[in-house]
Design a protein around this nucleic acid. Structure first.
Lengths: 121, 121
DNA sequence: TAAACGGTTAAGCGATCACTTGACAATTGG
DNA sequence: CCAATTGTCAAGTGATCGCTTAACCGTTTA
């Protein structure tokens, strides 16, 4: 799974509250490094380090022109995280469906037999 | 924001790859602590600690009966994370819409004037 | 050209983290 | 009752993390 590594990186990036604040700022539009640093009361160095993590994870994109680096959200960057969550949801929903089918079949044990399957409710 | 704290907890919980593996296992159905520990090659103690984080964040629910603790996914637990991501997406999409409107209005500067708004593409 | 601006890098520091070990319940089965 | 199972708690360890400081570099402006 090449996608597994990306998921690791994205969730690790979003795991830090400061980095999420940076993403929140960027979701309102592009910004320079110092523009991102100001409202957080952080050093430029600190923001640069966070941006490296965010960019390497694919959540933001960065481009330097002249002496100012402009940062913006990478549209598809958050997809892997959203997909991971969606997959968890669909999996346990699918499981709940199988469970209720089992219970329904148990109420009407006509004809076909459901083999002995037990579930911890 | 009471919701802000939960978001912090959930993303911090999901930030660790081992904890995500635990959630993946639980999305296939409930499991005991030792059943969770086995495939990961971890100590029971380690898993218990992870479970405390996951439960405190609201992602999983835990119940002890007899000497075995049964863990299951808390259906609504992942919502705050999914919502945070969805909000980021809708925000920069909204911004892109405003931007394209601006460009369209610039092509047809008829009638109503869009005040002087500049955007860094 | 000199000074200010915006950013980058490296080193270091304190705090937190994930995990192990080991001692200790509490429950279950022979 | 004894022993195995299942989990919990406390302490400690090594690694990583987030951040700062300080020196430095390329760009812009006066």
């Amino acid at each position: 799974m090449l996608n597994q590594k990306r998921t690791d990186q994205v969730f690790a990036a979003l795991g830090d509250p400061t980095r999420r604040k940076l993403v929140e700022q960027l979701s309102h539009g592009p910004a320079s490094v110092s523009a991102l640093a100001a409202p957080l009361g952080l050093t430029l160095a600190a923001v640069v380090q966070h941006l490296q993590v965010l960019e390497h994870s694919g959540v933001v994109h960065t481009e330097k022109v002249g002496r100012v680096r402009t940062c913006r959200i990478e549209p598809t960057g958050l997809n892997v995280a959203a997909e991971w969550i969606a997959e968890r949801r669909s999996l346990w929903e699918c499981r709940l469906d199988r469970l209720s089918n089992l219970l329904a079949a148990e109420d009407q044990p006509t004809g076909r037999t459901t083999k002995n399957e037990e579930e911890t409710t």
